[in-house]
Amino acid sequence: VTTYKLVINGKTLKGETTTKAVDAETAEKAFKQYANDNGVDAVWTYDDATKTFTVTEMV
């Protein structure tokens, strides 16, 4: 189990959160659900070296 981080650069929601998951795909599903629940529709990137997902909402 690995800890993954999500950085949110949204128009109305900004911040960071983490989740523990067995792999990046599982973490991504959890983070996308979190973003969807909070109304963030954005572009996703992932950095495997830092285990960090970044979501940037387009203006």
Results as ranks from 00 to 15, higher is better:
E57N: 06
F53C: 01
T18S: 09
G10D: 04
D48H: 08
D37V: 13
V55C: 13
E28H: 12
E25C: 11
F31T: 00
T19L: 14
Y46F: 04
A21K: 02
E28I: 08
A30Y: 15
L13R: 07
A42K: 05
V22E: 08
T18G: 02
V40K: 05
V22P: 13
F53M: 00
L6C: 10
V55A: 15
A21W: 04
K32I: 08
K20C: 12
W44M: 08
N9H: 11
D23V: 02
A30I: 15
K51Y: 07
F31Y: 01
T12V: 11
A27L: 02
D41H: 11
V55P: 01
K29A: 10
N9V: 13
G10V: 15
V43R: 07
Y34D: 02
G39E: 06
T12S: 10
K51D: 01
D37L: 15
L6F: 06
T56A: 05
E28R: 13
E16K: 06
D48C: 04
N9F: 13
E16C: 15
Q33M: 10
T3L: 12
Y4Q: 01
A24S: 07
Y46R: 00
T54N: 04
K11V: 13
K51P: 00
V55H: 03
G39F: 15
A42Q: 08
K11P: 12
V22D: 05
F31C: 02
E28V: 05
T54C: 06
K29N: 05
T56E: 07
N38R: 13
V43K: 08
V7L: 06
V1L: 15
L13N: 08
T3N: 04
V59A: 10
Y4M: 01
E25P: 07
K32L: 08
A35Y: 15
M58Q: 11
G39I: 14
D47H: 04
V7P: 00
T3P: 02
L6G: 01
A30L: 14
K32V: 05
V7K: 05
V59G: 12
Q33L: 10
Y34G: 02
V22S: 09
F31L: 04
D41G: 07
T52I: 04
F31E: 00
T52F: 01
D41S: 10
F53R: 00
